[in-house]
């Protein structure tokens, strides 16, 4: 996690002016002055998003070698490639807030950084690919879609492109979903099983109900947070529960129902202790996936060394 730098005393007038600008809908460009707390929170958010794209490549990539059919294999390779590419864009944005990519990646590989809870879970069957592309990417789309109107302009711009691609991933996932949902009984059973396994992590994805706190207030005022966790979860359920029902599959929560009077979905409270554990890299696949990252990071050490020497030499030749 990013280290806390002692906050420099900030001129209350400058701070108030900043908050007023942001509140009025203005966006902040890279290199502009920001309050230290803003920089810290924005960096934490974007760094975690970048980490999640890189770690998020792992569950799905397991199915590239086994994808059934040439078109599926190419499409899944392209899809995972998109996620890795998002990681690149996001690390570049994070760099504008003061950390180097090397540092962030080293921290991620060492298991000292966070990434989204959903990427700590196994992808056990081909049907998991459909669930990840439709529901996990669909969940991410709610959060990221909202953040397109965040106050940090470089992040907002990158999110436009990311959401455009994520929307495409959902369409791709729906195609896999349809093939399985309308397929043989074994294919349908495989899909239902995957949906059941992923339900809790997806409900966790949006986080607990926000506490009403001055901190949350400030994040909302600064537009580093745009919608509350519960708003996003409800938005997700409104879009995605109908897909499950349309194909005659079971929603894995027997208590889930639309409450007309409250205009919201009522659901079983998931086990938040599990989310906390997973968040500390204690999920079912956390250790294994980090070990994989470490293995390749170590294997490529000499390659990185060659690149940095080559660059140094090229820089020297220019200078």
């Amino acid at each position: 996690m990013p280290e806390t730098t002692p906050a420099a005393p900030e001129d209350p007038e400058v701070l108030a002016e900043f908050t007023a600008r942001v509140r009025a809908g203005e966006q902040i460009e890279a290199g502009e002055w920001v309050p230290e707390e803003y920089r810290f929170e924005a960096l934490r958010l974007i760094n975690m998003h970048a980490n999640s794209e890189i770690m998020g490549a792992l569950p799905e990539r397991e199915w590239i070698p086994r994808a059934p059919g040439l078109a599926r294999k190419m499409a899944l390779t392209a899809k995972v490639q998109d996620e890795v590419g998002h990681g690149m864009l996001l690390y570049r944005v994070a760099e504008t807030l003061g950390r180097s990519r090397d540092e962030m990646i080293a921290e991620l590989v060492a298991g000292r950084a966070r990434f989204h809870n959903v990427f700590h879970y196994p992808a056990e069957t081909w049907a998991d690919v459909a669930i990840i592309q439709v529901f996990v990417d669909g969940a991410a789309m709610q959060t990221q879609g909202a953040l397109r109107s965040c106050s940090y302009a470089p992040y907002a711009r990158v999110l436009k492109r990311i959401c455009y691609e994520e929307d495409f991933h959902i369409q791709l996932g729906l195609d896999v979903w349809r093939a399985l949902a309308e397929g043989t009984p074994a294919q349908r059973a495989m899909l239902q099983d995957a949906l059941c396994r992923w339900w809790t992590p997806i409900m966790h994805f949006f986080g607990m109900l926000d506490r009403v706190s001055p901190h949350t207030e400030k994040m909302l005022a600064w537009r580093i947070k745009v919608k509350s966790n519960e708003e996003l979860r409800q938005q997700f359920l409104r879009k995605f529960v109908p897909i499950i029902l349309e194909y005659g599959l079971d929603v894995p929560d027997p208590n889930l129902r639309w409450a007309e009077d409250e205009q919201r979905y009522v659901y079983t409270e998931p086990d938040w202790e599990e989310l906390k554990r997973v968040g500390r890299n204690g999920g079912p696949k956390s250790a294994e996936r980090l070990a994989l990252r470490q293995r390749f990071h170590a294997q490529h050490a000499w390659v990185r060394e060659a690149m940095s020497r080559w660059r140094a030499r090229a820089d020297g030749a220019v200078a």
Partner: peptide, 21 residues
Amino acid sequence: SEWTGFGPDIESDVAMSSIAQ
């Protein structure tokens, strides 16, 4: 395509995925 996700840096990872496709 087995390199997808495991390239020596992000750029090469992306490039190798394109070559695979």
